[in-house]
Structure formats: structure tokens, C-alpha cells
Design a protein around this nucleic acid. Structure first.
Length: 338
DNA sequence: GGTAGACCTGGACGC
DNA sequence: GCGTCCAGGTCTACC
């Protein structure tokens, strides 16, 4: 997909200097969310694109990099940007691509787990906002991957803002805002976005993001503050609607806190097929947890890249995966099959 | 602290 | 084409 330029608006190009080890294809295609709407990864062109939410409305971006680590990221934007919008866009891109994790910090991880030194893996793709990360986590709970893909497509199409790009009918949409979801009826979410029983919980989460932390709302700064303990963050997250042990641990890794593992049926499958563990699921989950405990503050990344490497051994390099064909690949039956 | 069952959806399967 | 079963994490009730 090429950027569809907005009529009457001058497109903009930004350049961002990433960390010296940053490689777009490897570091974007490092977590399943790169396959979820509104994200798009163009396999042939090796270009990342999506609609971004900005003050004057959504803008489509295309991000590319010459495939040499540390080369600048070239970001084509479908319209002109005000100075605050430019700053906001850069902030969101830095979050999404984890550009604030320096090459030195990734090297620290490789010291603890040298298996990923050659490939350079270390950054885990996430969303431009914490709200999108939380909702993507909720839509990944208690469903198989194709349903998660579908829910995110529908959330964007039904409640996201459409990029004004001329007569095209398939114009991209942004991820819906907290404001939009907070004012949406749960029945609408259920009927049109197919989120099922998550409807009320999703609306409540959006409202909590819009509530002042003094009144019980979600305090993003506090959650992202390195001086806040992992324990405190976990205790807060687990109290949120729709967030259980798996989701809390997953949101923690998305916050850059890698100590805990989001243990799910995939962890059990991995424990059985790759680590050779035997016994009931509950026991295997505990053993997977202790298996990665020696990696300490980097446990999640050691665990995750082991899983990711397994997926790539089955389906080829992740930068070759197409969203519409991954659905059937990432089912328990497909992954358990020899 | 541990466990059982309900919650929903989409896909697989059998007829 | 229809009905049934199953997978998936969270939540509540219960022991």
C-alpha cells in the first residue's frame, strides 16, 4: 500500500535517527501486534504503515529504512503537520518501535542471554499508546488468533477515524480513541466489533483511561515511571476490568517490565514441545516460569524470542508473514502438528 | 489457595 | 446448510 496523499494538504517526510543497532524489519516483526489493525507490514516493500491519531485528525504514515542497522527511519506522512503534531507523532513512533531502548540496553540483555546476540533481537514491537496495547491484550484473551485479528479490524473500521484520502473505499482507519470507546454502547461493541463478553470491560477500561488518577483513573506516568516497582504495577493492573494474570504480565512487558511471563496455553505448548516438560498444564506453567527465572529482569524477552524462533522455524522469517495468512498458522493444532 | 463453570466467538467436524 | 463441539483467559462462587 502506498501512502494516499490527502488532497489539498502537503505531504511531510520525517527522518528519525534510531539506535545504532535498530533494524526495521527485525524489530517491527518481533511481536504479533505488528499484524493487528491498524498496523500493516508490506512484505514485498518491507514498509510499515498505519493511520496515526493526531490533534487535527488521523494521518497515514509509511515507515521505511535501508536494511542496514542504525540507518535513519524515513517516515512519509500523508498530510502536513503542525509543530505539536510533529512532536506527538515522533513520540508515538518512538514508543511503538521502542527507540528509547538504546543499543547498550539491548547489549545488556544479550549479556544475560547470548543466544540472541547474532540475530540482534531484543526489542519487542508495541503500540503507539498504552491504551491500544491494553485493548489489544484484552482482545487476545480467551480467543484464538484469527478472532483477535478480526476484533482489531472491526474496532478500527467501526470506531476509528477514517483517513481522508479521496474516493478510495478502503481508506485506512486509526485505532479508536479512549473518548470514542468510552462513549460507545457495549451492545454496539458486541454486535459490530464482535468482542463478545468483553464489551462492558472495554468501555470501562476506556473510561478509566479518561478518569483523573486521583479519582481512580489509570495513571500512565506512574505506570511508566521506572521508580514504580513491578509489584505495584502488577497489583494495579490486575484490578482493572478484563485484566487477569496473563493480561497483567503482558501489559507489563509492553511497559518495558520484562520480569514476569504472560503464561497461557502457548506457554504450555512451548513447555511440552520445545522444553520437553511433562505433566498437567498447571504444573507445566509453573515449570516454564522457573525455567526462565534465571534470566531475571530479562525473563520475558528470553521466553518470547524462544517462542518467536519456534514460530519462525515453522513458518519462515516473521518479516515474510502476511496478516491474512497467519490466522490459520497460529492455532494450537497447527503448532502442535509435526 | 485452588477449582468448577459461565462467559462469547469462530472454526472444525459430522450429518 | 445446520447443529454440535471445542479452544481460549477472566471472573465469580464455592470449598
Amino acid at each position: 500500500m502506498n501512502v494516499q496523499w490527502v488532497r489539498g494538504e502537503m505531504p511531510t517526510t520525517l527522518k528519525i535517527k534510531p539506535p545504532s543497532d535498530y533494524l526495521l524489519g527485525r524489530d517491527v516483526c518481533s511481536y504479533g501486534y505488528f499484524l493487528l489493525a491498524p498496523n500493516r507490514w508490506d512484505v514485498k516493500r518491507r514498509v510499515f504503515s498505519r493511520a496515526m491519531s493526531l490533534a487535527r485528525g488521523p494521518a497515514l504514515i509509511e515507515v521505511k529504512q535501508k536494511p542496514v542497522a542504525g540507518n535513519p527511519l524515513a517516515i512519509d506522512v500523508s498530510r502536513s503537520l503542525t509543530r505539536p503534531e510533529r512532536a506527538e507523532l515522533e513520540r508515538q513512533i518512538r514508543r511503538m518501535f521502542r527507540l528509547d531502548e538504546s543499543a547498550g540496553q539491548i547489549a545488556e540483555f544479550h549479556k544475560i542471554d547470548p543466544r540472541w546476540r547474532v540475530s540482534g533481537r531484543g526489542r519487542v514491537f508495541r503500540s503507539p499508546t498504552l491504551f491500544e496495547d491494553v485493548l489489544k491484550t484484552v482482545t487476545s484473551c480467551n480467543v484464538q488468533w484469527p478472532s483477535t485479528v478480526h476484533m482489531n479490524i472491526r474496532l478500527c473500521e467501526v470506531l476509528g477515524d477514517r483517513v481522508a484520502s479521496g474516493p478510495e473505499t478502503s481508506a485506512p482507519h486509526s485505532f479508536p480513541s479512549t473518548k470514542k470507546i468510552a462513549s460507545t454502547r457495549p451492545q454496539t461493541l458486541r454486535a459490530r466489533c464482535r468482542v463478545g463478553y468483553r464489551d462492558q470491560r472495554i468501555v470501562e477500561l476506556a473510561r478509566l483511561f479518561r478518569t483523573n488518577p486521583r479519582n481512580g483513573g489509570i495513571d500512565q506516568e506512574w505506570l511508566e515511571d521506572p521508580s514504580t516497582s513491578d509489584e505495584s504495577v502488577h497489583d494495579f493492573l490486575i484490578e482493572l476490568p478484563g485484566i487477569g494474570p496473563y493480561a497483567a504480565a503482558n501489559i507489563m512487558q509492553l511497559l518495558g517490565r520484562y520480569t514476569r511471563l504472560p503464561l497461557d496455553t502457548e506457554s504450555v505448548r512451548h513447555g511440552r514441545t520445545v522444553l520437553g516438560l511433562k505433566g498437567p498444564s498447571t504444573k507445566i506453567m509453573k515449570r516454564v516460569k522457573s525455567h526462565f527465572a534465571p534470566f531475571g529482569a530479562h525473563a520475558f524477552r528470553s521466553y518470547w524470542f524462544e517462542l518467536w524462533t519456534f514460530y519462525e522455524s515453522r513458518h519462515g522469517p516473521s518479516w515474510m508473514w502476511e496478516r491474512d495468512s497467519t490466522g490459520k498458522l497460529f492455532t494450537a493444532s497447527a503448532l502442535n502438528a509435526d
